[in-house]
Each structure stands twice: as structure tokens, then as C-alpha cells.
Measured scan of single mutants.
Amino acid sequence: MDVFMKGLSKAKEGVVAAAEKTKQGVAEAAGKTKEGVLYVGSKTKEGVVHGVATVAEKTKEQVTNVGGAVVTGVTAVAQKTVEGAGSIAAATGFVKKDQLGKNEEGAPQEGILEDMPVDPDNEAYEMPSEEGYQDYEPEA
């Protein structure tokens, strides 16, 4: 019985440690998101679009440190934060509304985080759909 109880105690310690790591990862992701939003706020009209992409990228980098179902929630929060940063930029006159959601080359930025393969159960990952990809044929 002692062996059984000791095993359960060790398992509990492992769960607590994993929860603490997840909590730490979420806190880091939130900190990076805040950094990115402050970065966007300090940019001029020309830099705002690039700044919004930076927020998304920093958040995406930190999301990889967070495991399990938390990833889905962090990704949703990050996307809403990026959308909010863009709205703030438009409201303050840093950028025109028609410039939001495009990178410096004018290509749409939507789907940055949505296409990231995420499995809350950590069982399997699927690649994003290939609808947006084109076949590449090298020139002879």
C-alpha cells in the first residue's frame, strides 16, 4: 500500500510541476504579447503594419512553449490582441483601416495563427491545408 501511495504522490508532483510550467509559459506569452502591443503603439504610420505582424510573430513563438489545451486559448487571445492593436492603430490615425491585415508588401496577414497546427491532446499534428499553395516548377 505504501508503494501505491508513494507512486500516487510522485504522479501528483509531476502534474503540479507540469501545471506550473504551463502557467509560466502562458505568463511569458502574455508578456511578449504586451511587449508587441507597446511596440505597435510606438510606431509611426509606416511601421504600424509591420508592428502588428511582430506582435503576432512574438506571440506565436511563445505559444510553442505552452502545451496542451492552453495553446488553443493563448492563440485565440493573441489573435484578438493583434486585431485590437490594429483597431487602436486605425482609431489613433497611425494607419488607414484599409491597410490593416496586410503586410508591407500588401499581402493579407489573416491566418497567421489560424494555420498553425495545434492539437490540445498532444496526440497528432496535421499540416495546414494546401489550398493556398501553388506547385513550383523550376525553369529549365
Results as ranks from 00 to 15, higher is better:
A76I: 10
V77K: 01
T92H: 06
M1E: 00
T64Q: 06
G47P: 01
E105M: 06
P120I: 10
V49E: 03
G36Y: 12
Y133M: 09
E57P: 02
E114Q: 15
A27H: 06
A69P: 02
G68I: 13
N65F: 07
A53H: 10
S87G: 14
G31S: 15
P120L: 06
T81M: 11
P108T: 14
A29Y: 08
K21G: 00
P128K: 12
Q109F: 07
A11E: 00
A19E: 00
A30Q: 03
V66D: 01
Y125K: 06
V37R: 00
A17H: 09
V118F: 08
G51A: 03
G25A: 15
T81F: 06
V70T: 04
A90E: 01
K43W: 08
K12P: 01
E123Y: 13
Q109H: 06
S129A: 05
E110Q: 13
A11T: 06
I88R: 05
K45L: 07
F94D: 14
A69E: 03
E61S: 07
A91Y: 11
G106W: 14
G7N: 11
Y39K: 03
S87K: 07
A11I: 15
E61N: 03
V95W: 10
V74H: 01
T92S: 08
E104F: 15
E114P: 07
D2N: 14
L8P: 00
K43Y: 07
P117R: 03
E13Y: 15
E110R: 12
A30I: 14
V74I: 05
V55W: 05
E20C: 08
A89F: 11
H50F: 04
E139S: 15
D119V: 08
K43V: 09
V63D: 00
A17D: 10
V52S: 03
V74E: 00
V82G: 03
E57M: 04
I88S: 01
D135T: 09
K32E: 01
E13F: 07
E35K: 14
G41V: 08
G14N: 05
Y39C: 07
G86I: 12
M5F: 06
G25L: 15
E61P: 03
A76N: 07
Q24E: 07
A19H: 06
G51T: 08
G67C: 12
K23Q: 04
M5G: 01
F94H: 15
D135C: 10
M5I: 02
Y133K: 03
T81V: 11
